[in-house]
Nucleic acid binder design. Sequence first.
DNA 1: ACCTGAACACCGTTCAAGT
DNA 2: ACCTGAACACCGTTCAAGT
Lengths: 240, 240
Amino acid sequence: MTAHPTPRPSRRERPAKPALTRDGIVETAVALMRAEGLQRVTMRRLAQELDTGPASLYVYVRNTAELHAAVLDDLLGAVDLSPAKASGDWRDRLVRVLDSYTDVLFEHPGLARSALVARPSGERYLNLLEALLSLLSEGGVPDARAAWAVDLLLQFATATAAEHAAGEKDPTDAEGEWAELAAALRGVSEHRHPHIAALGTELLSGPGEARLNWGFHVLINGVLHTPRPEAPGPDTPETS
Amino acid sequence: MTAHPTPRPSRRERPAKPALTRDGIVETAVALMRAEGLQRVTMRRLAQELDTGPASLYVYVRNTAELHAAVLDDLLGAVDLSPAKASGDWRDRLVRVLDSYTDVLFEHPGLARSALVARPSGERYLNLLEALLSLLSEGGVPDARAAWAVDLLLQFATATAAEHAAGEKDPTDAEGEWAELAAALRGVSEHRHPHIAALGTELLSGPGEARLNWGFHVLINGVLHTPRPEAPGPDTPETS
DNA sequence: ACCTGAACACCGTTCAAGT
DNA sequence: ACCTGAACACCGTTCAAGT
């Protein structure tokens, strides 16, 4: 979370020039992203920021995907987990935590995109998992089911944020795509695609926030109503 | 779908060398992807395949994202929509269509990744939407709700496929990430992360297929149990 | 009017060679 | 033993200049 104590207040010069350690690299990457956007957080640009060659980074980071995952884990420090320990309806509190997670990702949709492929596995991510699991447990969701449910909830939030990665730099492209889909939906033939024609723009309607919220509730309700297929537990009577 | 009748059995030479049209470009892109994988479907490589310079492609395709969306739409021709018109339980048939969609994407997870950001908007995609909407309608899901539900279902399937985009080329990276998360989960402190510790590897457990199927049913059950917040219809009394 | 060669401004990753 | 300069093998996109 950029909250690591600065390694040491080195001589003078610029705001620190962190030592070449994994933490220093990630910290610099986060700063670079805040300053110039994720698309500038490349091995080469980052190395330049650290006054070295790109090859040096590979001593501490396996590849770009891992770097992005580490950056995301750092950002996850900003997720508000306090509702997990508060009182009140557990569903509301669950949604509040998920909203906070989504807010963080919405500020960096490109990172959300990476997260779908290379999940973080750091401290902050574990804290988030723990908070979600405790809320589901409070809601009476059986443990094994909660293990899968957490995945579903985070995947939905992450994917929704990732969808906004289009036109992070150039919004023109994103509008182009959207307009094209809107046009395709409007221009649909009433007898070959009756349902689409009947719905019209309804398919694209609604503020993102309302859809997101509805999605969370769909998932929560669905989880409550859908047992896991066959817990392969040692003492579960097989009902085939 | 590569099912366009070959443009014309041109002279001799290679399998066609399609004319420089949008369709020809997409067709060549699909062939290139099947032959060498999505990561080779770049503007430059594709131009080379078409015996021209990359600049020429920009006359027909706005950018790489749009190209990928067009390729995906083409692939969507392979989705089996027949269950939509069959008889039997509508849920089963809905899941069958979604499974077919997922199968197509699983063969090209990188494309699924693109699809989250740049959705296709072509003929095949519309056919898929229509099939899903008709099944939801059959199941008694109100129209406005179905419009949102379709999005949720496709997003879940797409995101699940996209998650497999790691290590499409080099599976080593993907295993590295997975192993790291597994290690993080195992090494968790029992008193700081009690729920994670209790679940252990349960969090990563289960064959992907079972989780996918469970996810579909969670969504379907959730949709059935979750009305849309406030249809902003013209005659809906505002409740602020 | 339409098309495109060539250029601009970058990438990730590896490895041989230095300290 | 550890680190990294330099190279390899690429990218997307634009635009001035040609036909």
